[in-house]
């Protein structure tokens, strides 16, 4: 009948195992898939990630050199980072924080405008 007593008493007199989020944030393991980012300077805007993304979260505008990901569509499978020819897409362990609206993450090559104005 009292098989649980031992567990319960042991729990009562030991420190709770709770991770005190958000007061203490825990260290994520390396290689955890939390959020996806692109380095706009390295990226060649080939569009391979857009082609292979299973949930169609990535949109690449080759003409204007804009890389957009919708983190609210992304399923964090990591295929984009795996197949990226320049390895410009990186997966960070920090997760995307909740927001009140679905904000897209836009990465754009900064020198683009200058180059265009020179031309």
């Amino acid at each position: 009948m009292f098989a649980m007593v031992k567990n319960v008493i042991k729990n009562l007199f030991s420190r709770p195992s709770t991770r005190l989020f958000p007061y203490q944030t825990r260290e994520f393991f390396p290689n955890v898939r939390g959020s996806i980012d692109n380095d706009p300077e390295v990226c060649i805007y080939c569009g391979a990630c857009q082609m292979r993304c299973p949930s169609e979260a990535i949109v690449v505008n080759r003409a204007e050199k804009v890389w957009t990901i919708n983190p609210y569509k992304c399923i964090l499978c990591g295929v984009c980072a795996q197949i990226c020819p320049k390895k410009s897409i990186a997966i960070h362990s920090e997760y995307v924080h909740p927001q009140s609206s679905k904000v897209k993450k836009i990465r754009q090559k900064k020198v683009v405008e200058e180059a265009q104005s020179h031309a």
């Binding site: 989020f21 958000p22 825990r26 997760y95 995307v96 909740p98 009140s100 609206s101």
Partner: peptide, 24 residues
């Protein structure tokens, strides 16, 4: 009111989302 991204969303993210909803 609050969108929590992720597939599956991490418990930390869900808690953060609930705390944001509290602000709402």
């Amino acid at each position: 009111d609050v969108y929590v991204p992720g597939c599956a969303a991490k418990p930390e993210a869900i808690m953060e989302g609930v705390l944001q909803a509290v602000q709402v």
